[in-house]
Amino acid sequence: MSEKQRIVIPGDLVSRDPARRGDGTYVRDGSLYASLYGLVNEREKIRVVPLSGKYVPTRRDVVVGFVKEVTFSNWIVDIGSPYEGLLHVSEYPRRIELDEMSAHLGIGEAVLVEVKEVDPMMKVELTMRDRRLRVIRSGRIVEISPSKVPRLIGHGGSMISLIKGASDCSIVVGQNGRVWINGKGC
C-alpha cells in the first residue's frame, strides 16, 4: 500500500476488468471507469475513495443524530445526510408512553443511534436497541467530513485508539462524520 495514490476524476479509466467493480466506479463498454473524484484503492475489488461527499445511510451504520421533531410515535432525527432518520418509540431502549416522548428525548438533543433499515425509497429507520446506543448528554460533538471517517478510525482502528489513549477520552465516531468525544474534563 506504499505506492503513490492515484487521483482520478469522474470518467477516468480504472480497469479493463469489469468483474473487479467496487464502490465509486461504473461499467461502460466492458471497462471500469471512476464515477467519483477521489483516490483509487486496488485490492480484489477496485474502489474509488471519494475526497468529499454527503453521508448516505446504510444498514448497521452507527451515527450521531440530532432530534429535529417529535411526532405521534416517532422521533425525526437529522443524521447529517439528505435523508432524515425515523426513530420509533418501540426502538427506544425502554418502554415509554407516547405522551412522554419529549421528556425522554426532546428536540435538539443528540443521540447515538444505529441505522436499522434503509428502504429503496430512502426511508431510514433507526434503532437504539443496543447497549452501546444512548442519548448523548455529556461530552461534545465534533463534525468532520464523512469521507474522512475511515482516516480518523485508521487501519484496524489504529488512529482512533492512539487518540483515545493519548487524550484519555472516550471517542465514538459516527459513520456520518459526527464524532462524540466524552472525557473527564467535559
Partner: peptide, 16 residues
C-alpha cells in the same frame, strides 16, 4: 502515511 481505507467495522464496540 498513505490513506487508509478500512474494511473494519465499528471500532465503537470497545467504547461501549
Amino acid at each position: 502515511e498513505p490513506l487508509e481505507t478500512p474494511e473494519e467495522e465499528p471500532v465503537e464496540v470497545e467504547t461501549v
